[in-house]
C-alpha cells in the first residue's frame, strides 16, 4: 500500500535508544556485514544487492535486517569507529546479528512498527527517529 500523505508517524519498539534525523535509504533486501559492506566508506559491496555502490553513511537505513556472516556487528562497529555509520537503523526482522550490530554501532534503532516501513517510507524521505519514545516521523521529499 502506497502512503500518499505528506507526513505521517509510526510507532515501534526501541532496540537502541536515542534521537536522529536524516534522509531515508530504503531497501527491501537484507544486508550482509562482513563481505557485504565496505566499513571504510559505508557502502554496499554485495554484487547482487540493489544498493550496490551506494553509501549509507549518515542516512536513516531502512531494511529488513541482517544476513550472512557473524562479522556483521564487527563491521558495523567499524563504521562507527570510521565515522561512516548510518544515522539510525529501522528494520523488520530481529536477529542476533542486527541486535548486536545496532548496540555496538550505538545509533538509534527500532523494530516492530505498526506499519510497513519498507513500503510506506521511500528513499529520500526525511525521517525523524525518537527511539526513546518509540515514534518515527516521516516527511515526503
Amino acid at each position: 500500500m502506497v502512503d500518499t500523505r505528506d507526513s505521517f508517524s509510526l510507532r515501534g519498539r526501541k532496540v537502541v535508544g536515542g534521537f536522529a534525523e536524516g534522509e531515508a535509504m530504503v531497501t527491501s533486501q537484507t544486508i550482509s556485514g562482513w563481505g557485504g559492506i565496505n566499513e571504510r566508506n559505508g557502502s554496499i559491496i554485495e554484487r547482487r544487492h540493489e544498493l550496490v555502490g551506494q553509501s549509507f553513511a549518515g542516512k536513516i537505513l531502512i531494511f529488513p535486517g541482517a544476513k550472512g556472516s557473524s562479522g556483521w556487528s564487527a563491521f558495523f562497529h567499524m563504521t562507527r569507529i570510521n565515522n561512516v555509520a548510518p544515522a539510525a537503523m529501522l528494520f523488520t526482522r530481529m536477529t542476533t546479528k542486527i541486535a548486536l550490530g545496532a548496540v555496538v554501532t550505538r545509533v538509534p534503532a527500532m523494530t516492530d512498527f505498526d506499519g510497513d516501513i519498507l513500503t510506506q517510507i521511500r528513499t529520500g524521505d526525511h525521517v525523524v527517529v525518537n527511539a526513546n519514545t518509540g515514534f518515527i516521523e516521516v516527511t515526503r521529499r
Binding site: 556483521w72 556487528s73 564487527a74 548486536l100 555496538v104
Partner: peptide
Amino acid sequence: TNVEGKES
C-alpha cells in the same frame, strides 16, 4: 547457539 558476534 545463535550467531554471536565479536563483542558478544
